[in-house]
Structure formats: C-alpha cells, structure tokens
Amino acid sequence: MTIRDAKMDIDSIHLFKRAKLLPNVLSKAEVKSILDAHSNIKHKMMLSLIYSCGLRCGELLALQPVHIDSMRNIVLLKNSKGKKDRIVPLSSKILEMLREYYKVFKPTTYLFEGQIKGKPYDDRSLQQVLKQAIQKSGIRKPVTLHWLRHSYATHLLESGTDLRYIQELLGHNSSKTTEIYTHVSIKSIQQIKSSFDDL
C-alpha cells in the first residue's frame, strides 16, 4: 500500500493543547524601582513609555515625534501588530518627561534614535538598558521588556479598568487574549480570607 492509498484515521490523531502560561507581572513597587534606576533621561524615558502605554518593543522603536499628540494627550501607534493603528492615553507625567527629553536630544525622524541621527534605536541596546536597570534595582527576576507591558495591563485591571478597554489599549484582536490578565490580577485574590486564619 502506498502513502497515497493510505487513509488517515482522524480519531487516532491526538491534538496537543498548548500550555496556558500566565504572563509575568511585576508589582508597582518593582516597576517604579526599574524606571527610577537610570539617571540617563533617554533610557528612563524609553522604559517609562513602554510601561505607561503598554507598548511592545517594536512599537516603541517605531515611534516618531509626530505620533505624540500633546494637545489630546495620546500616542498614535501606526501599523502595529496585525497591521492596525491604535491610540493609547499619554500620562501627564510622561508628557512632562518627554518635554525634558526633547530639549536634550531633539529627535528628528524617530522619537528614540540610535547613534546615527535619523535611524531608530537598536532593539538589542534597549534590552541592555532594561538589563542594567534590573541590576541597579536589585530585582532578581528574569524580567523582559514584555513584562512591563503585562504589568501595565494587570495594574489597569486591578485599578478597575474595564477589560474591553484594556483589549483596545493593548491592540488584542480577541478578548480571550486579554482575559488572561484576570488570572494574574491579585485584587480579588487578596480579598479572600485564608481558612488558616480561623484555626
């Protein structure tokens, strides 16, 4: 019997479910210590913008000065994952930091440029910026840039932001993707009284 003649027995195929891994989330205190670790305004600004807007690494590096709308306090993310544009709110504290950053660096094409004017900051260099911040803050966790995005979403959820808004802010196609943050939010868990306390 040739391979072509062989019939596939559908029932004998075992479908493997992908493991559902929970996103890694930092406490607000841990995020603050990471963001405060750098004295270099550019390094501080990049990490702060990732957390405060829930950005992906590529979205941050693709930002241009024209994407910052200081009149409406929003950031326009052009052509992000899934070829979609979206807007995210811009914190007033971040806007003040950005104004200070502009005065020093005067970015032209990209908001965060590398050593060559008009070229975007290198993603590997950005990873190093985070690594140095973690070392300085004394956090002993394998933190990645995406942890800041996860932390942003979880902290929004814990402060009472509707899951549908969080889905929009993160640019998720499916609400299922956003719902995973309900599993790492500790707000409702902290309200549960341990039975141990009654012993």
Rank of each mutant, 00 (worst) to 15 (best):
M46Y: 10
R86Q: 07
S188P: 02
V66L: 11
I3P: 04
I166Q: 02
Q190M: 14
E96M: 13
S194K: 15
S195C: 09
Y152F: 15
E30Q: 13
T2N: 15
S12Y: 00
T182V: 05
E158K: 10
K28P: 00
D123F: 14
R86T: 01
D197T: 12
Q64G: 09
N24G: 15
K83M: 07
C53R: 06
S159T: 08
S174H: 11
K28H: 05
I166V: 01
N79G: 10
H172F: 01
T178L: 06
E158F: 05
Q127H: 12
N79T: 04
Y110C: 06
K117A: 12
S175T: 14
H67R: 05
Y110F: 12
E59W: 03
L63S: 01
V104T: 10
L170K: 03
Y165V: 13
E179A: 15
Q115G: 09
K42C: 01
K176A: 15
D122G: 13
S52M: 08
H155F: 06
A29P: 00
D123T: 11
K81T: 09
T178M: 04
D11Q: 09
F16K: 15
S33D: 09
L35S: 08
H155C: 00
E179F: 09
A62M: 08
L95G: 09
E113L: 04
V104M: 11
S137R: 06
E100K: 13
I186R: 14
D36E: 15
D5I: 07
K83D: 07
L169V: 03
Q128V: 07
I189M: 13
D162G: 11
S174E: 06
P23I: 01
L55R: 09
L156Y: 02
S159C: 06
H155L: 02
D69C: 04
I189A: 12
K117T: 12
N79H: 12
F196Y: 13
L145M: 02
L90Q: 02
W147P: 06
I3M: 12
E113G: 07
D162M: 07
A19S: 14
Y101P: 05
T2Y: 02
E179L: 15
I3T: 12
K93S: 14
S188I: 01
Q128R: 15
S125L: 11
L15R: 12
M8Y: 10
I50V: 11
T144V: 07
S151E: 02
F105Q: 02
R149M: 03
S91L: 00
T177L: 04
C57Q: 13
D162H: 13
L22F: 05
H146Q: 09
I50P: 01
K28I: 13
L60W: 07
L49G: 00
C53M: 03
L55N: 05
E168P: 05
G138N: 03
R18Q: 14
I41H: 05
